[in-house]
Design a protein around this nucleic acid. Structure first.
Length: 524
RNA sequence: CGAGCCGUAGCGCAGUUUGGUAGCGCGUCUGCCUUGGGCGCAGAAGGUCGCGAGUUCAAAUCUCGCCGGCUCGACCA
């Protein structure tokens, strides 16, 4: 055993530079290391709440831009409703309050006063609120109380509104991005004259989420309906998109709910239809949150750090200059300037790392951890030969390939012109291959399972998505959850599973006939 | 919320058993030297030891309470 204070041997870093824990060693440590070292987020002084750092927030901003455009393209407008909700509003819808009551932050007073011993301040008991307010865990109630004022006739419908906001859910156990007490999200809340229209909206937004997840995040997702036990509190139907993370657990990445007339009844929102009859309004709601950033990390990243799909990268290429003398620096900098301008002109984000006193190697590690898709190295040799060194953060692994060969393939020395011309296609290819790789991973770890024996074996071997026929009760579901730490992620819409997954069969637990398979797995 | 572990400089940790001057590595700053995968040398700055109370001549160290983090469970649109 080496003395911990002695110099480490081999190619370990010279100093105590923090390294990322490999996935194989400790998956959740790996995840936290990336969040921390890529400077995405920090824990804050408040339990369960995070500070989203600029680099992490820039990813959220990119996501927002893409999603917001899709919402606008499907006819929605943004609006904003209050952070506080009268506690009585929550209880208007019975299931809704049941679902959220246990995780609400409550405001009961509006004033502080100095303590008598001058040691600080305390709640002024005189300032107790007539009715406590909760900090919104979701906004259905406050929004439907407003919709009541807006809707009288079928001519006022549909209302297609989205809100970008923060919400608070006092979770028992939190993890950065995946489950925090406060998180950022968007919530769409729509009102319709007919059930069919509201259902269509519910499915349309599920498809918007799928499109965004797969084409922007390069994260394949399964669309499907949640079982009654997993439904949103107050919904008649809940649909989700579920991604498979690299540890083969599922992550619920977005939900779209058909709320029927539940909230319209709770807030007495009726409209006069074209036939002159009063009717309750039909509703949908749908949301995705900063949890997506957690999904992004766990879908693509590797032991060297974050890997960003180009469409979510603010910086697509980083330029690292290499020089010894002032003379070389001048020469190299002139070239960097030109290369930077040309990449910018192509419409890509580019950053020139001018930090002094850091070796190029340090900079390489730095940008790798942050997941920047392309690195361009420019040294005197390159300037003289009219070439550029272009290094990709990610190339598709080939079977049996060792780490050194992989690294060699990431690095190309190209003529300046060739290198610049290859940036756009390289980014497009990376985006495509990240999706392909994640999809192949999910397929490899998805299986049609027809007996409890197979089921046990599958999860003993590491698990994944088990496509099983199911006709059990909610109690049966809970029993499965206890015994296997698995749950029904959703009942996938047809056409998404392995060969033969859409055929009817019999429940693996009860043997009763079943029309469709469900996907069971461990989850976040 | 239950069990276990943890909280000492920006980061990672030693010191706590047996109370007695606040330590190490990395990072940071200054200068020199370097720069094609985490350079080197010299010097310097940096601390309410998570917070509060208690025991004591004396508390990072012992006691009690609280806060926060990690892992596992319970819980979780």
């Amino acid at each position: 055993m080496a003395n911990p204070s002695s110099k480490s041997s081999g190619k370990a870093p010279a100093g105590g530079t923090t390294r990322i824990t490999p996935r194989a060693t400790d998956y959740s440590k790996w995840y936290l290391d990336i969040v921390e070292q890529a400077q995405l987020a920090d824990h804050s002084a408040v339990r369960g709440c995070m500070v989203i750092r600029p680099y992490g927030y820039s990813i959220w901003e990119k996501m927002q831009r893409e999603l917001d455009q899709r919402f606008k393209d499907t006819g929605h407008q943004n609006a904003y409703f209050p952070l506080f909700i009268p506690v009585s509003f929550l209880s208007r819808e019975a299931r809704h309050v049941e679902g959220f009551a246990k995780e609400c932050a409550v405001v009961t007073h509006h004033r502080l006063r100095a303590k008598t011993d001058k040691s600080g301040v305390e709640v002024d008991p005189e300032s107790r609120l007539e009715e406590p307010l909760i900090v919104r865990p979701t906004s259905e109630t406050i929004i439907w109380s407003a919709y009541k004022q807006w809707i009288q006739s079928y001519r006022d419908l549909p209302i297609l509104i989205n809100q970008w906001a923060n919400v608070v859910r006092w979770e028992m156990r939190t993890r950065l991005f995946l489950r925090t007490a406060e998180f950022l999200w968007q919530e769409g809340h729509t009102a319709h004259a007919t059930e069919a229209e509201a259902l269509e909206e519910t499915r349309r937004m599920l498809e918007v989420y799928r499109d965004f997840a797969e084409n922007i995040m390069a994260m394949p997702v399964l669309r499907g309906e949640k079982t009654p036990g997993e439904r949103f509190a107050g919904a008649l139907e809940t649909f989700s998109i579920e991604g498979m993370m690299q540890d083969r657990k599922a992550l619920q990445a977005g939900t779209s709910h058909y709320l029927g007339q539940n909230f319209a009844r709770a807030f007495d929102v009726q409209f006069l239809n074209a036939q002159g009859q009063l009717e309750h309004v039909y509703a949908s709601s749908w949301g995705v949150s900063t949890r997506l950033i957690g999904g992004l990390i766990m879908t693509h990243s590797d032991d060297a750090g974050l890997i960003l799909p180009p469409k979510l990268a603010g910086i697509h290429a980083v330029i690292v200059p290499i020089y010894k003398t002032d003379e070389e620096k001048t020469k190299v900098y002139a070239e960097c300037e030109k290369v930077m301008a040309e990449i910018k002109a192509q419409g890509h984000g580019v950053h020139w790392d001018k930090r002094e006193g850091l070796s190029p190697g340090s900079k390489y590690y730095d940008w790798e951890i942050r997941g920047v898709p392309l690195r361009i190295e420019i040294g005197p040799r390159d300037v003289d030969s009219g070439k550029l060194v272009l290094v990709r953060r990610f190339v598709l692994e080939q079977p049996g390939e060792n780490e050194k060969a992989l690294r060699m393939r990431k690095k190309q020395i190209l003529s300046r012109q060739e290198a610049l011309a290859s940036i756009t296609p390289a980014l497009a290819e990376m985006q495509q291959q990240l999706f392909q790789r994640a999809l192949a991973f999910r397929q490899k770890n998805s299986r049609l399972i027809n007996s409890m024996g197979e089921y046990d074996e599958f999860f003993k071997q590491g698990g994944g998505f088990a496509w099983v026929h199911w006709a059990g009760t909610q109690e049966d579901e809970e029993t499965m959850a206890k015994q296997h730490q698995t749950s029904i992620r959703n009942i996938p819409l047809p056409g998404q599973g392995p060969e033969g997954s859409d055929a009817p069969g019999v429940c693996i637990l009860t043997g009763k006939p079943s029309a469709r398979r469900v996907v069971m797995s461990q989850s976040y």
